[in-house]
């Protein structure tokens, strides 16, 4: 069983939601698509068969799409609040004529102790786990998960990740749609970003690969003048690599540096001085003792008083970054002003 997008493109009234892309999710694979809410909703509608693509097609297992085939995990759960966990699962099992054992699924979602409790009385994260258990009982071959771990507590997140592992070992196709890069990176093997610029892969390395790779990199740096261009950041146990032009600005807070990319921040192992040295060729500028800014992204230089200045970036949140007085002089020189 595979899930395939072939030249899929969606437009709504002249505005491009996403340009055509190809993506295949094979069985046993966990793929996350990191996108805005609009794109996510459109993808869900497409998969539900409520709307159709402007170009291209979606194929399940090589054939044209049939609805009811994938199992959906929606952001808003649909549970009968007055039923107990066990009754809810039994109902789902009968409704879907499923052969899956309820007890196994209760154990997998770690709801054993809660089986007799009414769903209304459970916490939000527990309700999400019941929703997951229901989906497991349906036992579809394709799982489409919408923001699966949003607002979940740590315990449930851990359970959710272990369920994902179990499903991937079970040769299921797992397709995660999320607007949270951290969630995408922690749960999936392969992460893509989908927006009006198309589908881009976000490169990642897992911890053990990094261990092998980190030493050679250290050697490279000491022996060869060739520099590794990408900037690594750490998200849980994975390393995510960013292209310098993607970075909006870098901030240092209590000795830890953070890369700010599209409104999200990622901790980085390097110090500001190291990063400044590395990023200088890419048009980055140390505008303050604890900030480095990507000059390509600066829209305005605001003068508050004679001695205080700020830079306004052109990202979505219009971030403002302090600019120190001494650096203002330097910046003016760079810009060719006096």
């Amino acid at each position: 069983m595979t899930l395939e997008f072939i030249n899929a493109e969606k437009r709504i009234h002249d505005s491009l939601i996403f340009p055509s892309f190809n993506l295949t999710v094979n069985k046993g694979q966990v793929v996350a698509v990191y996108s805005s809410v609009n794109v996510r909703e459109q993808l869900i509608h497409l998969l539900l068969g409520k709307s159709s693509l402007s170009h291209g097609e979606i194929r399940l297992d090589g054939s044209f799409k049939q609805t009811n085939c994938p199992g959906f995990f929606f952001l808003h759960h649909s549970l009968y609040e007055r039923l107990s966990v066990l009754e809810m699962l039994r109902f789902t099992k009968k409704l879907h004529h499923s052969e899956v054992s309820i007890d196994d699924m209760l154990r997998l979602a770690q709801l054993d102790a809660k089986r007799a409790i009414r769903i209304k009385q459970l916490s939000f994260s527990e309700q999400k786990r019941v929703q997951f258990a229901c989906l497991l009982i349906q036992n579809p071959s394709i799982f489409v998960l919408e923001e699966p771990d949003q607002n979940m507590d740590l315990e449930s997140k851990r359970i959710y990740l272990s369920i994902l592992q179990h499903l991937s070992a079970d040769e299921k196709v797992i397709f995660i749609l999320t607007g949270n890069l951290e969630s995408a990176v922690t749960s999936a093997d392969t992460v893509f970003r989908l927006d009006a610029n198309g589908l881009q892969s976000i490169q990642m390395k897992t911890e053990d690969e990094r261990d092998e790779a980190s030493d050679p990199i250290g050697m490279v740096e000491s022996t060869q003048p060739v520099r590794f261009e990408k900037i690594p950041t750490k998200v849980n146990d994975k390393i995510v690599l960013f292209n310098p032009p993607e970075i909006d600005y870098i901030e240092s807070n209590e000795g830890q540096t953070f890369l700010h990319i599209k409104g999200e921040s990622f901790p980085c192992v390097f110090t500001l001085t190291e990063l400044e040295e590395r990023l200088l060729p890419f048009g980055f500028f140390r505008c303050h003792r604890s900030y480095i800014v990507n000059l390509q992204k600066v829209r305005e230089v605001v003068t508050w008083t004679r001695n205080s200045y700020s830079l306004v970036l052109e990202d979505l949140s219009k971030s403002t970054i302090p600019l120190s007085k001494s650096k203002m002089v330097e910046l003016k020189e760079m810009l060719g002003l006096k």
Binding site: L48, T67, N68, F72, F74, H76, H77, S78, L79, Y80, E81, L95, H96, Q138
Partner: peptide, 10 residues
């Protein structure tokens, strides 16, 4: 309660 969607997808 949004449960009709679940029923209809079943």
């Amino acid at each position: 309660k949004n449960t009709l969607r679940g029923l209809m997808l079943s």
